[in-house]
Each structure stands twice: as C-alpha cells, then as structure tokens.
C-alpha cells in the first residue's frame, strides 16, 4: 500500500491501521487500531487533538467515473471525536469540536461546521451543510440546536495516552526530521 504518513508532535498512531495515500496527523491526535484512512482523491489533513476510535473509516475517494478529477484536500479540524465504527465518506470538510457518535455515517459532499454532534447510527446522505452548533439525532436524523458544546470527559485523553502505548505498537515517522 503506497502511503505517505506525517505524524505531528505528540500524536499517537497505532500500527494496525490501514492507510492509503497521503495522510497527515496533527499534534496530540490519537488514532486507535483498526482505523481505515483512504486518501485517493487527495491528501487527508487531520488537525490537532482529535480522537479516532476503533474501526472508523475515513474514505476520501472520487466518485466512480470521475477518477481523473483534480485532487482535493480533505481537511478535518481539531478536537473532533470519531467514535467506534463511524464512517466518513467523501465529506467536503469537517470543522472543529465535533463528535461523530458510534456507527454514524456521513455521506458525500457534506460539510460539517463546528460544535456539532452527529448522533449514534445517524445516516446522513443529504448535501445541505450542517451548520455550527447543530445536533443530529434519531432515526430520521432530526437536526436541532445543540444546547451545550460537545465535550469529551477530562481524563479520557490522558487515560488513552497512558494506556494505548502499553498494549499497541505505535507508528513512527519515517522521516526523522519531521516532528517526533
């Protein structure tokens, strides 16, 4: 698998992930094992302080038949949490402070703002952008105003930084000049 991986300062990326194409991880980002990142339609840039949990798929591909298009960079902001088995497919952009709950699916050409919560199991396929501070929940993907900023429990990140390296092999930067 041809891949160029750039790992930022303090980021933890488990070895057992599938990467295709050019992917960069921002500082303090935590990637659990079993994650699939496919950057065929251009590089994926993952910001700082993100947590990507097990079996998350971030797929950045061209539509079938449009393989020769201009490559586009997929930018994912900072402080996002992708919970177990959430799938991101062909999203145009993702802002900061979002939570993608378990088994949620976000479809093509959708842009997601800041401070959003995509509820567990929500299947979003429309292309109308999700504005800042929206909460999507339920089987009909009802969008309503979120009353509080999504937050991760305080100790969670510290807990992961302590625990992950003791049970999993971590990926290191191939190029020693950059980062770490």
């Amino acid at each position: 698998m041809s891949s160029k991986v750039k790992i930022g300062q303090g980021a933890m990326v488990c070895k057992e992930i599938k990467v295709k194409g050019q992917v960069s991880f921002g500082a303090s980002t935590i990637i659990h094992p079993g994650v699939t990142l496919i950057a065929e339609a251009g590089p994926i840039e993952i910001g700082e302080n993100n947590i990507i949990e097990e079996y998350v798929n971030i797929i950045h591909k061209f539509l079938p038949g449009h393989e020769q298009s201009e490559p586009v960079t997929l930018k994912i902001g900072s402080n996002n949490v992708f919970e177990v088995y959430s799938t991101i497919e062909g999203v145009s952009s993702i802002g900061d402070n979002n939570i993608f709950e378990s088994k949620s699916f976000v479809g093509r050409n959708l842009s997601i703002g800041n401070d959003c919560i995509i509820g567990a199991g929500c299947h979003l396929t429309s292309t109308s952008p999700i504005e800042d501070g929206t909460c999507v929940y339920g089987k009909n993907c009802t969008r309503q105003k979120a009353f509080c900023k999504p937050s991760v429990p305080g100790g969670h990140r510290e807990f992961l930084t302590k625990l992950l390296p003791s049970y999993h092999l971590l990926r290191k930067n191939k190029n020693p000049i950059e980062g770490n």
């Binding site: 919560i117 509820g119 909460c135 929940y137 339920g138 009353f147 509080c148 999504p150």
Partner: peptide, 11 residues
C-alpha cells in the same frame, strides 16, 4: 438535566 441520546440539556 442532560439527555445522553440527543444532548438536550436543561438550561
């Protein structure tokens, strides 16, 4: 009060 499903909170 907080709803753990849709993140509604009493405010």
């Amino acid at each position: 009060l907080l709803c753990l499903f849709c993140n509604w909170r009493s405010h």
